[in-house]
Nucleic acid binder design. Structure first.
Length: 168
DNA sequence: GCCAACGTTGGC
DNA sequence: GCCAACGTTGGC
């Protein structure tokens, strides 16, 4: 321990994240309307994304991102329950059913998230691309498809500052 | 709707 | 273990 590492870096484990959702599937408005503004983040069927979710800890904060139409960072959520088996993978009726996952040997995980706040103004992807401090952010990388992404402390702080400045 | 980028699958 | 084929994601 050098004593001057940022507080999010013990073991180089990120403490800030970005969660991607198609708004017509589950939007931040849906989250705001959910009981206790909390939901389980199900349906992740990608190993890299799953492994990142497993690193999440209660109290970690995550940017909420809408993909597809008007792609933009729309708000802030926190992790309220750490990774546990995604039971939707066991349901043949579910869109994300995966027969390889069983209650005995779960393959996929989910976490619970709670809304902290929706930004008064969404931060559109094209605008974020113009921000020098965000160069190198995974979200902005060409071809980036990961639905769960780590976000550095600096990137996270910059996004929150932009959300403040973008107030109407 | 197009297409680049990416992950997964399966033949060999 | 390589790699072509395929399906999916997601910006544009």
């Amino acid at each position: 321990m050098t004593g001057n590492k940022p507080d999010n870096s013990p073991g180089n484990i990120p403490r800030h994240w970005l969660l991607k959702s198609e708004p017509n599937c589950f939007s931040i408005e849906d989250l705001a309307a959910a009981p206790d503004q909390t939901t389980f983040w199900d349906g992740v069927r990608n190993y890299q994304a799953r492994n990142l979710m497993r690193k999440m800890r209660v109290g970690d904060q995550a940017l909420y991102y809408h993909s597809q139409t008007n792609p933009s960072v729309v708000g802030l959520v926190e992790i309220v329950r750490e990774a546990y088996p995604d039971h939707t993978a066991w349901d043949p009726q579910n869109d994300h059913f995966d027969s390889r996952s069983t209650p005995d040997k779960p393959l996929w995980d989910m976490v619970d998230i709670r809304l902290i706040r929706k930004f008064p103004q969404a931060l559109p992807l094209p605008m974020l691309r113009t921000v020098a401090d965000l160069a190198g952010m995974e979200l902005l990388r060409k071809g980036s498809r990961l639905s769960v992404q780590p976000v550095t402390e600096a990137q996270f702080t910059t996004i929150l500052r932009l959300a403040e400045e973008a107030k109407p």
